[in-house]
Write a protein that binds this DNA or RNA. Structure first.
Length: 589
RNA sequence: GCCCACAUAGCUCAGCAGGUAGAGCACGUUCUUGGUAAGAACGAGGUCAUCGGUUCAAGUCCGAUUGUGGGCUCCA
C-alpha cells in the first residue's frame, strides 16, 4: 500500500459514520422530493451502510430505488452544505409538526439533552449528527433493498418501509463490498446443501423440517460420533429421552406456563395429554431423580443429542439456521456449590477445544447477569455469575457483560463464533438454572447427612447440530476438511481396462475406513475431474496405464493442485494420518 | 405473525398485447476408451405451486392459499 499524505483523510469508523449518516439524509431528501407527505422514521448507520424508515402510501419497488438513486445523485452533484444548529425544544416540536415519528423521538429525549437539526438544501432533519461538510463529499453509494420494519421494532405499531443502502470512500471500495456480498451468497448453506446434495426442506414435509440426504447424514454422523466420544472422555454420561412427554411434566417444569407459545399443540393419547418436547431438561431431571444422590456422586453430567421441536413463526425460518425441529448437543450438569467453578472451566475448555477442531478460532463471549425479575436467592446468583466470569478470565479471553440480560432462572454465558468471512454465529450457551431444581425439588445428601439442593447448569456447545452444520458449510464454503468430507477420495479410471486395478485400490482404501468412490461411468476423465471438483472431494486419484505399471497413484486436490505421483500405500497412510489430525483451514476467498 | 418480492422440467433460467411451453445442465440409449475442469448423436421429462375469478381463450390479468427470499420481531 502506498503511504498517504498526512492531510488525506483515512476512512476511519468516524468517517464512515459521517458519510453514511449523510447519505441517509440525502436519501430521505430524495424520497421527500419524490413523495411529498412522507413521514420520516429513523435513519441510522449500520455495519457497512445505513437505512432510513419511511411511512409512504405505497411500498417502494425496485424501480423506485433506481429513481431515488438518481435524485440522490443530483443532490450530491449540487454539493449542498450540511449545516447543524441547536434548536430549543418548543421550536423543534413546531418544526416537526408534520413528522409524528420524529416528534415522538423529541418527546422521549431527556429535557436537558440538546436538540440538533441538520440541514442541506431544503431538507431539514432532527439528527444527532455528525455529517460531512457537504453532499458533494459523497464518493460512492448504492441502495440495496427494501423491507418492512415496525416503528421502534414493535409489532403493535405501524409498519414503515425501510430502504437499506451502503456508502464507501471510493467506487472501488463499493465494488469490493458488493463482491463480498456475492461471495457470501455463493457460500450460502442452502445453495451448497442443494449443490452437494446434503439436505432439503420440502413443501410436502413442512417448513423448517429438515430432510438429511445420505451425504449430509454422513457428515452429521461423523460430527455426532465425534461429539459422543468427546462427551464420554470428558466425564459425561449419554442418555436418550423421548420426543414427547405428559402434560404434567411440562406443568411441573413451568414450560406450559412460560414457554407455551413456542410449543406445538398437544396430542391426546388414551385420554392423556402429551406434548412434543421443546427442551430436554425435564427428561434429564427425571433421570437424575431416579435414585437418591449423594454428594459423592456429583457432579453428574447427563448429555444427549436431543431433538426438540419449537414453533417458530414462518417469517423467521431460514435454511438450517432457524428451523422447527432441531437437535441440541445438550447436557445438564448437576453439582455442588464447591464444584461450580471447576465445572464451568471444564465446559469452556470443552467448547474451545471443539471449535478449534472444527476450524473456528475467534469467539465473542457475553455474560448475562441477573434481571429485574428472577427466581432463586441473590447469593446463589452472585456465586453463579462470579463463577462464570472467573472461569472466562482463566482463559484470558475478553468478554462483554449484558447487565440484567440473564433469563429469569439464572445467569449465562453465550458464545458466538466467527466464520471465515467474519460473520458471527450464536452457538454455545451455558446457563445456570435456579428454577427447575426447585420445581422438581431436586436434592442430594451432603456429607452432613442433610438434604441439599444441587446446582444445575444447562449447556449446549454447538447449540443446534442443524445450525452448526449450516455454519460449518458456510465457513468452509462447502470444502469440508478431509475428516468431515462425505467422500474423501474419488478414484478416476481413465479407461475401462483400468477398472479391475482400481477396484482393488478402492478396496484397500475402504479397509482403512477412507470414504472412497470409484467413478466408473462411461465418461471422459476430464468430466469426472470437473464433477469431483465441483463436489469438493478432497482427493482425486487418476489411474491409467502409467500408474498401474508403476504401482503409483496420480493425485489431484480439489483446489486443482497436483501432488507428485506416489505409491498407493504411501497415499493411503498419508490420508489416514491426515484424517486422524482432524485438521482444516477455511479459505478467506 | 407483519411488509415487499418471487414460485415455469431434478437443477439454473428464458418465455408473455392473454392464443394451450423452450434452452443448458442432470437423466436414458447408442457411438466413443478418452491423460488433469464439459467428446458426440438421439431420446424421455412440465395439467407453468394450489384453488378460485375475469375472458371465446390464462403460465401470462385479478383474488385467496401454500411455500421460498429480503427484512421486522424472535432465537439454538
Amino acid at each position: 500500500m502506498t503511504p498517504k499524505s498526512s492531510t488525506s483523510e483515512f476512512p476511519t469508523a468516524d468517517y464512515y459514520d459521517r458519510l453514511r449518516h449523510s447519505v441517509a439524509h440525502i436519501m430521505a431528501d430524495a424520497v421527500l422530493q419524490r413523495y411529498p407527505g412522507t413521514k420520516l422514521g429513523v435513519g441510522p448507520t449500520i455495519e457497512n451502510g445505513f437505512y432510513y424508515d419511511f411511512q409512504v402510501d405505497n411500498p417502494f419497488t425496485p424501480d423506485d430505488l433506481i429513481e431515488i438513486e438518481k435524485s440522490m445523485q443530483k443532490i450530491i452533484d449540487l454539493d449542498l452544505a450540511f449545516e447543524s444548529r441547536a434548536v430549543p425544544r418548543s421550536e423543534a416540536i413546531s418544526l416537526l409538526q408534520d413528522q409524528p415519528f420524529k416528534k415522538e423521538i423529541v418527546n422521549d429525549l431527556d429535557q436537558e439533552e440538546e436538540i440538533t437539526f441538520y440541514r442541506h438544501g431544503k431538507f431539514d432533519d432532527l439528527c444527532e449528527g455528525p455529517h460531512l461538510q457537504s453532499t458533494g463529499q459523497v464518493p460512492s453509494f448504492k441502495l440495496l433493498s427494501t423491507a418492512g420494519a415496525y416503528w421502534r421494532g414493535d409489532e403493535q405499531r405501524p409498519m414503515l418501509q425501510r430502504i437499506y443502502g451502503t456508502a464507501w470512500e471510493s467506487s472501488d471500495q463499493l465494488d469490493s463490498y458488493l463482491q463480498n456480498l456475492e461471495e457470501a451468497q455463493k457460500r450460502d448453506h442452502r445453495k451448497l446443501g442443494r449443490q452437494l446434495d446434503l439436505f432439503s426442506v420440502q413443501d410436502e414435509t413442512g417448513p423448517g423440517l429438515i430432510l438429511w440426504h445420505p451425504k449430509g447424514a454422513r457428515i452429521r454422523t461423523i460430527i455426532e460420533d465425534y461429539m459422543r466420544q468427546e462427551h464420554y472422555s470428558r466425564g459425561y454420561e449419554l442418555v436418550y429421552t423421548p420426543h414427547v412427554g405428559k402434560a404434567k411434566l411440562w406443568e411441573t417444569s413451568g414450560h406450559l406456563d412460560y414457554y407455551r407459545e413456542l410449543m406445538y399443540a398437544s396430542m391426546n393419547i388414551e385420554g392423556q395429554e402429551y406434548f412434543l418436547k421443546p427442551m430436554n431438561c425435564p427428561f434429564h431431571i427425571m433421570v437424575y431423580e431416579t435414585s437418591k444422590r449423594s454428594y459423592r456422586d456429583l457432579p453428574i453430567r447427563l448429555a444427549e443429542l436431543g431433538t426438540v421441536y419449537r414453533y417458530e413463526r414462518t417469517g423467521v425460518l431460514h435454511g438450517l439456521m432457524r428451523v422447527r425441529g432441531f437437535t441440541q448437543d445438550d447436557a445438564h450438569i448437576f453439582c455442588r456449590p464447591d464444584q461450580i467453578h471447576e465445572e464451568i472451566i471444564k465446559v469452556l475448555s470443552f467448547t474451545f477445544d471443539l471449535f478449534k477442531t472444527f476450524g473456528f478460532n475467534e469467539f465473542d463471549l457475553m455474560v448475562s447477569t441477573r434481571p429485574k425479575k428472577f427466581v432463586g436467592s441473590v447469593e446463589n446468583w452472585d456465586l453463579a455469575t462470579e463463577s462464570l466470569k472467573t472461569a472466562i478470565e482463566e482463559f484470558q479471553i475478553p468478554y462483554g457483560i449484558d447487565e440484567g440480560g440473564g433469563a429469569f432462572y439464572g445467569p449465562k454465558i453465550d458464545i458466538q463464533i466467527r466464520d471465515a468471512i467474519g460473520r458471527s454465529w450464536q452457538c454455545t450457551t451455558v446457563q445456570f438454572d435456579f428454577n427447575l431444581p426447585d420445581r422438581f425439588d431436586l436434592s442430594y445428601v451432603g456429607s452432613d447427612g442433610q438434604t441439599h439442593r444441587p446446582y444445575m447448569v444447562h449447556r449446549a456447545l454447538l447449540g443446534s447440530v442443524e445450525r452448526f452444520f449450516g455454519v460449518l458449510l458456510e465457513h468452509y464454503a462447502g470444502s469440508l476438511p478431509l475428516w468431515l468430507a462425505p467422500t474423501q477420495v474419488v478414484i478416476i479410471p481413465i479407461a475401462d481396462r483400468h477398472l479391475e486395478y482400481v477396484e482393488k485400490l478402492a478396496n484397500d482404501l475402504g479397509k482403512a475406513l477412507i470414504r472412497t468412490h470409484i467413478d466408473q461411468r462411461n465418461e471422459r476423465m476430464n468430466l469426472k475431474i470437473r464433477e469431483a471438483q465441483a463436489q469438493k472431494v478432497p482427493y482425486m486419484l487418476i489411474i491409467g496405464d502409467k500408474e498401474i505399471e508403476s504401482n503409483t497413484v496420480s493425485i489431484r486436490q480439489r483446489d486443482g493442485a497436483q501432488l507428485d505421483p506416489m505409491p498407493s500405500e504411501e497415499f493411503l497412510s498419508r490420508v489416514v494420518a491426515e484424517i486422524a489430525l482432524r485438521g482444516g483451514n477455511a479459505t478467506e476467498s
